[in-house]
Every structure is written in structure tokens, then in C-alpha cells.
Design a protein around this nucleic acid. Structure first.
Ligand SMILES: [Mn+2]
Ligand SMILES: [Mn+2]
Length: 547
DNA sequence: ACCGTACACACACAC
DNA sequence: GGCGACGCGG
DNA sequence: GTGTGTGTGTACCCGCGTCGC
């Protein structure tokens, strides 16, 4: 599937052609005439022209100077360009804004070309731009900006089409064509899932359009376009595809946060109710509170408290409800019980501060016998990922559809566990009969280095793994893994900095380190609460620096 | 990992 | 001419 | 001093050339 970069100078072209073939085979019914035509015409072009086009597609932006497109395997850029210009896939007379011109030309070229119109031609490049921006010159072709400039500037007109193809192949827009070469070089290695030939990222053209439009809205948001306008755009976009809906909710949530930052509470109050983001309802209450609508805030908070959707909501409400009751003139609220956790106050020499608090405590605790590892979330998540490898990478319909996936598409759906409950039950069942150790060791070897949403290969040494398998009781692992499966997103974080093992006694403890001025985060509090409830040994260690 | 996702760290404010 | 930001390429 | 909320900074393959200062 992947062309080898070491012995094929056109490896990128062959990879691109593979993607076209893949799409033609599986997605033909989702392409329009223009897209179909591109795929078939592309094949008929000379190799040099095809290669140059792909090089341009892989580069940043759509505007280029031919002198910057100099590739040994392609040879003459001019010759390669001719067929692309004839087809209109590339044009060489696009109007350019002043800003675009400044991105393409060097400072000395601009200073020379605009010499008469610049007051201070020796200033910094950004200053030169500012001087010319004041003249409010409209976009125009290069030949009008700077008649007689040594080379043209060419524009690739196929970026939108190629984004669509990339979306179809990868099912997202954050992966790009460098995936192929990274995989070829062994820098990224993926599990080979035996998915069926009809497994596809997207099933209808309208979903593709929605995905592209959402991506565009995210870009508008980033560029700082008026929020009202972006919200209006998003509201028109609908789909029954769960990951598109999740994407939409996330974007609305971000818009809500932007509104908050601008102090636009009415807008935030309109946006948050439209988002299904796990924290959207809490933000809604919070904005009611910030805008001093305490009665409505209390009412909504009480309503959520009757049917909380997740543990984040429960936790946030425990803080907000007493506060709101006080605001409404209720009786003084009893102080919430602090979490049951053993606290250690530790005084360390200030020289160790350079290591960072976690490493300083790691060093200190290690002197008392019992090896200490700085693991945070990596240990428990890795053990989970190794034990449940087959369930996570099971070829369920629609979960896998291309060779570069590190996780199933529905990993963060509420139904992820339900759709695989049999498989996970089988994995977790191994914690009852002791066979889990062999499964974890087997996958540690056979899957070594393969991308996984749970396994942190760079942290998980064999020594750490063996100590963990000796010291961690299977019942503790089972509680932890069941909690993870209840809500992967929320429960995969918050685990303590350090873990200490005493293999001779089959004993361990976890230690969350807190330097001066630091405090437990919500996810860390929830982990500690979970540990208290299931008998997992965890401590919090406050560090003070000795003068 | 769809400018995200973990962390710690820096402020602010109310009690 | 040294330094950092950034884009590129395998 | 407590408890809260909010906004930052940092890291994601890595060596190399170009550009700007
Ligand atoms: Mn930590
Ligand atoms: Mn810590």
C-alpha cells in the first residue's frame, strides 16, 4: 500500500494515486462530475505534471513562486507546469492582496519594488507592510503590483477538492499525506485492522458537506469573525452522524466560551443550550450566575442535579448549588466534607526545585526503598489498552476504514462500550482467573510501538510493567477499568504523578505531588474519591522548599 | 489530537 | 554573523 | 488562611535551510 521513500523518488505521487484509487473504489457514489473528472484526467497527465501538482497540494497555502518548487525528480518546473496551466488546475495571474504579496516576496525584493512609495524603506518588514496598508491598495495581479518582476506567482485551484478527498480517505481533516511517509519510515505504526471493503468514513454527500462546513466555521472562529455570524452558519448544519454532531457541539461550546470571554452573556445563553458538550449545561448555569440571574441559575442547577448526565456535572453542582442558595438568601450552607485522603507535608532542600516538584519527590521517596515511577495517567491507561487490545481494535462496522487509525471512530460515543460489551467482558474477565498477566505481557511484545489511544509506549518499560503486574491487585485494576469504560473521556485523566512499588510485599501506593501554590484539579479529586471508595492506596504530598 | 489534550502555574475575588 | 521562527522533507 | 474561578504556558518526528532581525 505505501510506496517506499528510500528507493522511489516519486513515492509521494504513488501514495497520492493510491488514495485516488481507494476513493474511486469506495466513494464513487459520493463524488460529483467535476471530482470524478479530476480523478480520471489526473491519470492521463505526464508524470512530471502529476508530481508537481502533488508537491503543491502537500505544501502550505495555495500561492507559490516557481523558484521555490524546485525538485530534482521533477526536473524543469516550467515544463511540468504547462499541462496544469492548460487545464486551469493552476493559474498564474491571480489577483494578490498586499498581505499575500508580503508572504511571498522577501523583504529586499519588496523594498526595491516599492521604493518610491515607502517613506522609510529600511524599516522592519512588518513596518513596511503597515506603511503600504495605509494606502489601501486593492488586490491585483503581480504584473500590476511590480511590472517586470522576475517570475510569476502561481495559484493552485484544487485545494478545496483535495481537502474533500483527504476528508473522504481519512474521515477527518487533521491527518494529511505525510502520514504515508511517516508510516513508511516507521515513525508512526498502526494496528492493521481487518475491516471490510465496504467500511467507509462517511456514507452520504450531505455529511461530507457538513464536515467541510464545520471545519470552515472553526477557521472563521479562529480568524475572529463576528460570533453571531458563525453561530448562524452552524445552526443550519445538521446530520444524524454521531461524530459530526459531536464536532458540532464542540464548536458551539467553543463559541460559548468566546462569548463569555467577551462578556456577551445573552449570546452565551443562546449558544450553550444548543450544545451537547459534556460541560455545556454547567457553563449555562455559570453564565446565569455571572449575569446575576441567580433565581434562574438555581432553578437550572436544581434541574440538572435531579438528572446529572455525567460526573463532571455532579462535581460542579456540589460547588455551585450551595453558593447559589446563599445568594438567594438561604440558610448558611454547611461546609462540604473534604475528600478522605492521607496528606503528607514534605520539606525538601531548595536545590531540588530545579528538577521539578514531581522528580524531587520521586528521588526523596525512592531513598526509603520501593522504586518510584513518574507515570501520571500512563500506567493505568496502558494496562487497560494492553488487556483490552482486541476489544478496542475489533473490526466493528464503520469503526475502522483506513490504514492509519490509532483508535476506532466511535471511541468517544456513549455507545462505545455497549457495542462491544461482550468483548470487554471477556477481557475484564481475565482479571478474575489470573490470565490477564499473560495477555498484557503478550500484547506488550506483539503490539510494541503500535499507536493506541491508551498505551504510552515511551513510558511503559518492561521493568515498570512487571512491577505493576506483581503489585497491583487485579480487583483494583478491574475497578479502574470499569470506571474507565463508564466514561472514557472524563476518567482517563487525573491519576497521580507517582507510583511506588514494593514487589516483595506485593504492595504499592500512589502519590499526587503538589508544590506550593498548586492544588488538586477536578479530575484528580474524582480519582481520589474513586480510590477512597474502592480501597486503592493514594496520598497527596505537599512540598515546601527549605531555605 | 479535527487549535486538541494533559498538566502546572499565574492571577483574581469572596469569605 | 549569530539567533529564533518556521516551513519543508523523508 | 481557605475556597473558588479564570487565564496563561508547554509539549507532541527531527534535522536542515531560509528568512528576518
Ligand atoms: Mn502531574
Ligand atoms: Mn502533581
Amino acid at each position: 500500500m505505501i510506496a517506499h521513500s528510500v528507493d522511489d523518488p516519486f513515492y509521494y505521487l504513488h501514495n497520492f494515486q493510491q488514495v485516488l484509487d481507494w476513493i474511486e473504489l469506495r466513494y464513487a457514489d459520493l463524488l460529483d462530475d467535476q471530482e470524478q473528472a479530476f480523478i480520471s484526467q489526473f491519470r492521463q497527465q505526464p508524470q512530471a505534471a502529476r508530481a508537481l501538482l502533488v508537491r503543491m497540494v502537500m505544501r502550505k497555502g495555495q500561492l507559490f513562486r516557481p523558484s521555490k518548487l524546485d525538485y530534482a525528480e521533477i526536473g524543469s518546473t516550467q515544463a511540468a507546469l504547462a499541462p496544469l496551466l492548460a487545464l486551469g488546475w493552476v493559474v498564474d495571474d491571480s489577483p494578490l492582496s498586499l498581505e499575500q504579496l508580503f508572504q511571498l516576496l522577501r523583504k529586499d525584493e519588496l523594498a526595491q519594488g516599492f521604493a518610491e512609495r515607502l517613506e522609510r524603506p529600511r524599516a522592519a518588514k512588518g513596518e513596511l507592510l503597515a506603511q503600504l496598508q495605509a494606502l489601501e491598495l486593492p488586490p491585483q495581479p503581480l504584473q500590476q503590483w511590480l511590472p517586470g518582476f522576475a517570475e510569476p506567482i502561481i495559484e493552485l485551484r484544487l485545494q478545496a477538492l483535495c481537502d474533500r478527498l483527504r476528508l473522504l480517505f481519512f474521515g477527518n481533516l487533521y491527518q494529511d499525506w505525510s502520514e504515508f511517509v511517516l508510516a513508511d519510515l516507521g515513525l508512526l505504526r498502526y494496528e492493521q485492522v481487518a475491516f471490510s471493503a465496504d467500511s467507509r468514513a462517511l456514507r452520504q454527500r450531505s455529511d461530507i458537506d457538513v464536515a467541510l462546513a464545520l471545519h470552515q466555521c472553526a477557521e472563521l472562529l479562529e480568524q475572529g469573525v463576528a460570533l453571531e455570524q458563525v453561530v448562524g452558519h452552524i445552526e443550519c448544519l445538521d446530520s444524524d452522524n454521531p461524530w459530526l454532531l459531536r464536532r458540532r457541539s464542540r464548536l458551539l461550546y467553543q463559541l460559548g466560551q468566546h462569548s463569555e470571554r467577551l462578556g456577551d452573556w445573552p449570546l452565551a445563553l443562546r449558544i450553550y443550550p444548543r450544545s451537547q458538550h459534556p460541560q455545556a449545561r454547567i457553563r449555562h448555569v455559570r453564565v446565569l450566575e455571572r449575569s446575576e440571574q441567580w433565581a434562574q441559575a438555581f432553578e437550572l442547577a436544581s434541574q440538572i442535579a435531579r438528572q446529572p448526565a455525567n460526573s463532571l456535572e455532579v462535581q460542579a453542582l456540589a460547588r455551585m448549588l450551595p453558593r447559589l442558595q446563599r445568594k438567594l438568601g438561604g440558610p448558611p450552607q454547611p461546609r462540604r466534607a473534604k475528600p478522605q485522603v492521607s496528606l503528607v507535608e514534605l520539606q525538601l532542600p531548595a536545590e531540588l526545585a530545579a528538577l521539578g516538584v514531581e522528580q524531587a519527590v520521586q528521588l526523596h521517596l525512592g531513598q526509603g526503598g520501593g522504586q518510584v515511577h513518574y507515570v501520571e495517567n500512563s500506567l493505568f491507561n496502558s494496562l487497560f489498552g494492553l488487556l483490552c487490545w482486541e476489544a478496542i481494535f475489533a473490526p466493528l462496522p464503520g469503526a475502522f476504514f483506513h490504514p492509519f487509525q490509532s483508535a476506532p471512530q466511535d471511541l468517544h460515543d456513549a455507545e462505545f462500550h455497549g457495542r462491544r460489551s461482550e468483548l470487554f467482558a471477556r477481557c475484564l474477565g481475565q482479571l478474575d482467573d489470573g490470565s490477564y498477566r499473560q495477555t498484557i505481557r503478550r500484547h506488550f511484545v506483539s503490539k510494541q510501538g503500535l499507536q493506541s489511544p491508551f498505551v504510552y509506549w515511551q513510558v511503559l518499560s518492561e521493568e515498570l510493567l512487571e512491577q505493576a503486574l506483581i503489585c497491583l491487585p487485579p480487583a483494583h485494576l478491574k475497578s479502574c477499568f470499569e470506571r474507565l469504560l463508564e466514561d472514557i473521556q472524563a476518567n482517563r485523566s487525573g491519576m497521580p504523578d507517582l507510583i511506588q512499588f514494593w514487589p516483595e510485599q506485593q504492595r504499592y501506593r500512589m502519590v499526587e505531588v503538589k508544590g506550593p501554590g498548586d492544588r488538586l484539579q477536578d479530575s484528580q479529586l474524582r480519582w481520589i474519591e474513586f480510590c477512597a471508595g474502592h480501597g486503592l492506596p493514594v496520598e497527596v504530598c505537599h512540598v515546601h522548599w527549605a531555605p
